[in-house]
Write a protein that binds this DNA or RNA. Structure first.
Lengths: 229, 229
DNA sequence: GGGGTCATTAATCAACTGATAAATGAGCCC
DNA sequence: GGGCTCATTTATCAGTTGATTAATGACCCC
């Protein structure tokens, strides 16, 4: 029942000092905090690529360390995964975004363009998008909470600004208004999905995509408001 | 090294005819083709729910059969997965969609609304959306091919209709035009992502979301075209 | 430069998991 | 109703995988 370990057991012809294990480089000894962060960073990249069913041994191999070392810093795989979630979710919401969106000294078009440029810088990244989607598929609570925050801190304020922009009552945000802003938000998000999940070719100039999307939305909302009035 | 099988080995106090295995219902014997389809259907639901790392034993349990039975109908797990992909991807593209989109006897608004209603009926389903996303994250070739088809058979025709609608040259479809239609398409798709992947509460009336989205896009494009002219 | 600390590795376990082979028995045919 | 077919199960294997324990040795301190 001993592990076969592939061809490791074969005796080499000329084995120099066979008793001692040969290493490409001598064992590196890092400060605990440094190693922990290194593992965490590698875990983010690794799980983003292969999903959370990825094996601890492969992660360790990519780091160039042995698999039990991971367990010195993270008691279980689940603990490591939760730290990855925190790393992804909790360091991305910027409280300035809301101020930016509601600053009525600037044209709404400008505000929305700048917001989505910043938002994309923070979240439309390979690791973020993929871990976000994996965690969504897993039904993770942290994903649901994040969406709630997005809706309340970003989309609802956008809704209010849009209504004001169209001369509508700011307090009358309907479910359909919010849903409409979700379509815009999701449409832009989908750019990142196509890029990082589907690996599709997408337009280089995301700022141009945002600008035109905002144009269409602002003009479209105004036209719709005029019709209703 | 024998599997402990939980408490199965405990001897019951009053075991009626212990030699024969008790079954809730007697072993059912299905026609081969029928059983194969039954397994495939269950596999679609199962993998949609838990992802393709899901275990064959759990799938078998849900079906109420033993795990080796799966291997009578599908030589390997990978074969079963590929059949699931075919089931999802190859039975959904309706060639009538293109005709519907390009029928200039009808207002473009109507055509787009009807198209997205039909498209959503076919694909915005729990199993479809999730397996689509799982396969995308896995980098599956079939996913990339599907997206190519969507772009050429659906989005590009929509682009042409939109340009015609705005009085622009139909042949001048730019990369940015296409990207813009992707934003609309992705924005509507994202409704399904929110519903089936994030399990968010979404507006009941999807038709209303579509109608207003199409409104905004048509008005927005027209306004943008006017500015350029 | 010798000793101690603790980061790191080697060795190993137990449970899991895809897959196989042989035994079983349900349902059909004559 | 006896026998045959083949769908289904039982038993089991070999490789994988998260996790543990004890040995090792890199680096710091004096």
């Amino acid at each position: 029942m001993s592990p076969p370990k592939s061809s490791r057991t074969k005796t080499r012809a000329v084995a120099p000092k066979a008793r001692r294990v040969e290493r490409a480089q001598p064992r590196r000894r890092l400060a605990a905090a440094e190693r922990e962060q290194q593992i965490l960073d590698a875990a983010v990249r690794f799980f983003a690529e292969v999903g959370f069913a990825g094996q601890t041994r492969e992660l360790a191999q990519r780091l160039g360390v042995t698999q039990p070392l991971l367990y010195r810093y993270f008691p279980t795989k689940q603990d490591l995964i939760e730290r990855v979630f925190e790393e992804i979710y909790l360091k991305r919401i910027d409280s300035n975004w809301r101020k930016l969106l509601t600053d009525r000294n600037r044209p709404l078009h400008d505000r929305l363009c700048e917001f989505y440029t910043r938002y994309a810088d923070a979240t439309y990244r390979y690791e973020w998008i993929r871990i976000y989607m994996f965690s969504g598929l897993m039904g993770e609570e942290i994903n649901r909470r994040y969406i709630q925050v997005v809706e309340e801190k970003i989309l609802r304020p956008i809704c209010i600004e849009l209504r004001q922009h169209c001369g509508l009552n700011e307090r009358g945000v309907t479910e359909l208004d919010l849903e409409q802003v979700w379509v815009m938000h999701g449409g832009l998000f989908y750019y990142a999905v196509r890029k990082h999940i589907y690996h599709s070719r997408v337009a280089e100039d995301f700022a141009a995509v945002v600008s035109r999307t905002v144009d269409v939305v602002l003009e479209g909302w105004k036209a719709a408001a005029k019709k209703t009035a």
